[in-house]
């Protein structure tokens, strides 16, 4: 038996991390699938593919979206940014440095999604409160960290982005 004639592939140009990619793909593919499978951008993760975990978060025109819920065709002509697009060459962003310093990435699987969400927050709000950070990251699940180190890393990065010479609080690192 031959397969029922599947949908034809379409050709489109995507703008991802400042580069153009011309990709042929089946139009029902999600952005997550096209990023990972057609463009080899495997930094973006998946934990459910149902919009429940936030691991697949990327930015579309600066706004965090769940790439497993977005059809790739819908972002044609828009600017997509993934975790691979955060660092400037070998230079990590303050947010990435802060995550490394705080041990906010344990298994690291939720990290790309969380970085993309938090990066969008910091772009809008240079001095977010703990509650604002919590609210913003509530859709990104993490099973390893208990979230505390993540919140602290975002705060640390925000302070450093503001030009403050911020270091982690002693209690966060050594306990009370």
């Amino acid at each position: 038996m031959t397969a029922p004639p599947g949908p034809q592939k379409t050709l489109a140009t995507f703008h991802v991390n400042g580069e153009s990619h011309e990709v042929a793909f089946v139009p029902h593919k999600t952005l997550l699938e096209v990023l990972r499978e057609e463009m080899n951008l495997t930094g973006t993760k998946h934990g459910c593919e149902l919009g429940e975990c936030g691991a697949c978060t990327v930015q579309v025109d600066g706004t965090p979206v769940l790439s497993c819920l977005v059809l790739a065709v819908d972002v044609v002509g828009k600017q997509v940014r993934t975790v691979e697009g955060l660092a400037k060459g070998p230079e990590l962003t303050e947010l990435q440095h802060a995550f490394a310093d705080m041990g906010a990435a344990q298994c690291g699987y939720c990290t790309p999604g969380i970085l993309m969400t938090a990066d969008a927050l910091l772009a809008q709000n240079t001095k977010p409160t703990r509650d604002e950070i919590k609210e913003c990251l509530a859709g990104n699940l993490c099973r390893c960290t208990g979230y505390i180190k993540i919140f602290e890393a975002v705060e640390l990065a925000a302070a450093r982005c503001r030009g403050e010479k911020a270091e982690p609080r002693k209690e966060s690192i050594h306990g009370s």
Partner: peptide
């Protein structure tokens, strides 16, 4: 000391490979 984990850089830059990658 609170030094970074040896794999910290890969994990914050999306470069660490997991099985499905």
């Amino acid at each position: 000391k609170p030094i970074r984990k040896v794999d910290a850089r890969g994990k914050v830059s999306g470069l660490t490979k997991y099985a499905d990658d």
